[in-house]
C-alpha cells in the first residue's frame, strides 16, 4: 500500500513541534519525531509502507518488526484523521 499527503492537510513547525490541521474536519494534531520524519519523507510524493519502513530502519536503531508495527499504527491514524490518503 502506498501513501501520500492529503491535500486537506496543513502543517506548520511550531516551537520544534509539527502541528497539522485537516481543513475539512478542523482536527489538530501534533506529530512526534518519527511521525515528523514520515511526513518529511512524503514531501516528495508517494511512498509505499514498505519503503517507509526500510528508510526508518536504516535511520533509527530499531528492530524491523517494531518499526513495522509503529509505522502501521501511524499510517492508520493519519488516514483516519485525514492527514494522509492512499495513493
Amino acid at each position: 500500500m502506498s501513501y501520500q499527503r492529503s491535500p486537506d492537510a496543513l502543517h506548520a513547525e511550531v516551537n520544534g513541534s509539527l502541528i497539522l490541521m485537516n481543513v475539512e474536519s478542523l482536527a489538530y494534531f501534533e506529530f512526534n519525531d518519527v511521525a515528523k520524519r514520515i511526513w518529511d519523507l512524503l514531501s516528495d510524493g508517494v511512498l509505499s509502507e514498505e519503503r517507509i519502513i526500510a528508510i526508518l530502519v536504516g535511520e533509527y536503531d530499531v528492530e524491523p518488526e517494531r518499526c513495522q508495527t509503529a509505522v502501521a499504527t501511524f499510517l492508520k491514524q493519519a488516514l483516519e484523521k485525514g492527514f494522509l490518503v492512499k495513493a
Binding site: 506548520a12 511550531v14 516551537n15 513541534s17 502541528i19 490541521m21 478542523l26 489538530y28 501534533e30
Partner: peptide
C-alpha cells in the same frame, strides 16, 4: 502547550 495554543488561537 503548543498544540492547544494553536487550537485555541484558531
Amino acid at each position: 502547550d503548543t498544540v492547544n495554543a494553536v487550537t485555541q488561537a484558531a
